[in-house]
């Protein structure tokens, strides 16, 4: 396959070509070509079971694709290991809130910062050697409005705060590409607004690809929208264009009202 022209690499941070995944004969992701433009917020939407989370798991190599290619900054990452991808700047969040429950809020963020120190295998050093990271960790916590909870154990935070903590931890990785799996799922109204604002703020310096059910959030912050149905891309473009697409209206927007009411994943 010919290498992508240089301008396209600059323009698109992530590209999939013919990405396919099957589970025992059931095609979860089918021949998906997707290009994520650098610096944008790109939303992936689609009815339940459309293959959005599977697609995410393929991108972050938590699953191995059966066919196709994934390019990140022009490089083939189809066979890279998940932890390596994280180190190269693709950091994901999870559908269920992903915090370290029995670590404090500060420690949660610090784990992400710690990897850049050379001491992650140093089993003979005291924990106080990690204190150099505290200032940066507190900065990140302040960004998501968690400064007052630094010494609370993550398990004791309310749900919306946990998602905020997860976001702060993800930001601590200084990712180039942030993959958010339903960041507002199951949240109360004011939390949705807070997290939406946070995502917009975080996206100022990076690219965001997000799976999202809440169409209000998508309409408000997404630059580009891709609609998946039964593992296939049925439309891609600006919100206004996609919303007018007859196939999308039939497949998905018809149920947009239900999604607005907060349908579960």
């Amino acid at each position: 396959m010919a290498a992508a022209p240089h301008s396209s690499v600059d323009q698109f941070i992530l590209e999939t070509r013919g990405l396919t995944k099957q589970f025992k004969g059931f095609v979860a992701v089918s021949n998906v070509d997707l290009r994520v433009r650098r610096g944008e917020i790109h939303a992936l939407i689609g009815p339940n079971g459309a293959g959005k989370t599977t697609f995410f798991n393929l991108l972050t190599r938590f699953l191995t694709p059966d066919g196709g290619q994934i390019l990140y900054c022009g490089e083939d990452i189809t066979l890279a290991r998940p932890a390596e991808l994280a180190r190269r700047g693709i950091v994901r969040s999870f559908q269920m809130s992903a915090v370290f429950p029995h670590l404090t809020v500060l420690e949660n963020v610090r784990i992400a910062l710690q990897r850049r120190l050379s001491s992650t295998f140093h089993f003979w050093k005291p924990a106080s050697s990690l204190a150099v990271l505290d200032a940066r960790a507190r900065e990140l916590l302040a960004q998501v409005d968690l400064a007052g909870f630094a010494h609370t154990r993550a398990v004791e935070l309310p749900y919306g705060r946990k998602r905020a903590l997860e976001l702060a931890t993800t930001l601590a990785m200084a990712p180039k590409l942030m993959l958010l799996d339903e960041p507002t799922q199951g949240m109360a109204h004011e939390d949705v607004d807070r997290v939406t604002a946070l995502i917009r703020q975080a996206a100022a310096e990076r690219t965001v690809l997000m799976v999202e059910h809440n169409m209000q959030v998508v309409a408000r912050i997404a630059d580009t929208i891709t609609v998946l149905q039964r593992g296939k891309v049925i439309a891609s473009g600006r919100y206004a264009e996609v919303a007018r697409d007859p196939q999308v209206m039939e497949a998905y927007m018809g149920s947009a009202e239900a999604a607005l009411a907060g349908a579960p994943a």
Partner: peptide, 12 residues
């Protein structure tokens, strides 16, 4: 506490 999350933070 959370293997998948630790991987997604870049830890082997």
């Amino acid at each position: 506490e959370n293997e998948a999350r630790a991987i997604s933070l870049g830890y082997d």
